[in-house]
Simulated assay, not measured.
Amino acid sequence: MKIVYPYQDAFERDLAQRDIAQATRDEYTSTLKDFFHYLENFNPTYQREHRVNQLQTQDVEQYLAMLTDSRQILNATYNKVLSHLNVYFKFLFSHNWTPYLPTLDLKSKPKEETRPVNFHWVDDLADLLADSRLHVYTRAVLLLTAHGYPARVYLHPNFTATLKTSDWPADQQAFLQTWHRFVAPLQDRFQCADWLLKQRAAADPHLTLPGLHKYLRPDEAIVGFRLSPSTLYQGYLVNYLRRHPRLSDREATQQLHLEPDSIDYYRKLARQAL
């Protein structure tokens, strides 16, 4: 097993002894790996000596602020990450491996109110694509989502190699001309045929999900609804199910590439939207 954070072996043994499910233990690993990766790259305190016993509250606050500001995480995700870090540092403190509890004074965030899924944006796609105030990345995300592609698919390398757009409607073809004029220089620079590419030199030219959020977030003030790729995709699914109420569960899961146990959830959202 590759060690990705300090005292990983001992901490994982402790979690196992407490009969914590493997899926939850994997979440701890993901959180702590990301936390220490961030510290190695952006935190002077940790960069100097890579000593976990030097970390204090402001070091954890810096990481949580990055998650909130750059990655636009929800309060529920913030609270989960804080909980993971709190359990980890309490473990270190109990073994005298750190003299501090840097999470002691950090508070969880209030539960956010559930907002209805916006499915109307799919019906307004033509107007959205024609709105030059929106960044081309925003409009490309809307277009791809409206054709049923989630972010994990359209951000994957080589996705556009099999993307067929010739039969898309005229208003979408008009935007595609704008899009290709924008992306062609980036494709030439990186020698990459994919669509969602970084605008600065990089070893990996593909735009990441956090990087994509930086373009989407400012445009929310223009459109008046959330542009998070996951939220947009939920809206697309609800819109599709509203338009096709006679689809069987099997047909819906096949056409929308959903897991069978999630179709009831989206059907419920579609019924609520009626």
Rank of each mutant, 00 (worst) to 15 (best):
G148T: 11
G148H: 08
A151T: 09
A151M: 06
R152M: 09
V153R: 11
V153A: 10
Y154H: 07
L155P: 08
H156I: 01
P157C: 05
N158D: 15
T160Y: 14
T160V: 10
T162A: 13
K164Y: 09
T165M: 14
S166W: 08
S166Q: 13
W168A: 02
A170F: 12
D171I: 09
D171T: 12
F175D: 01
Q177N: 01
Q177H: 12
Q177D: 03
T178D: 10
W179Q: 05
H180R: 08
R181V: 07
V183N: 07
A184Q: 13
A184T: 12
L186S: 03
D188F: 11
R189F: 15
R189N: 08
F190H: 07
Q191R: 09
Q191V: 10
D194T: 01
D194C: 03
W195E: 00
L196C: 13
L196Y: 06
L196I: 08
L197N: 04
Q199T: 15
R200P: 01
R200S: 14
R200T: 15
A201E: 15
A201K: 12
P205E: 06
H206L: 04
H206Y: 14
H206A: 02
L207W: 09
T208Q: 00
T208F: 04
P210A: 10
G211R: 04
L212R: 05
L212G: 05
L212P: 04
H213D: 04
K214D: 06
P218E: 06
P218K: 02
P218H: 05
D219I: 12
D219P: 03
E220W: 08
A221M: 12
I222A: 00
I222N: 01
I222W: 03
I222M: 02
G224K: 08
G224E: 12
F225E: 01
L227P: 00
S228M: 04
S228A: 12
S230P: 01
Y233T: 03
Y233A: 00
G235K: 07
G235E: 02
Y236C: 00
L237T: 07
Y240V: 11
P245D: 02
P245Q: 01
R246I: 04
R246G: 01
S248G: 04
S248W: 06
D249W: 06
E251A: 13
Q254T: 08
Q255V: 09
L256K: 05
L256I: 07
L256F: 05
H257S: 03
L258I: 01
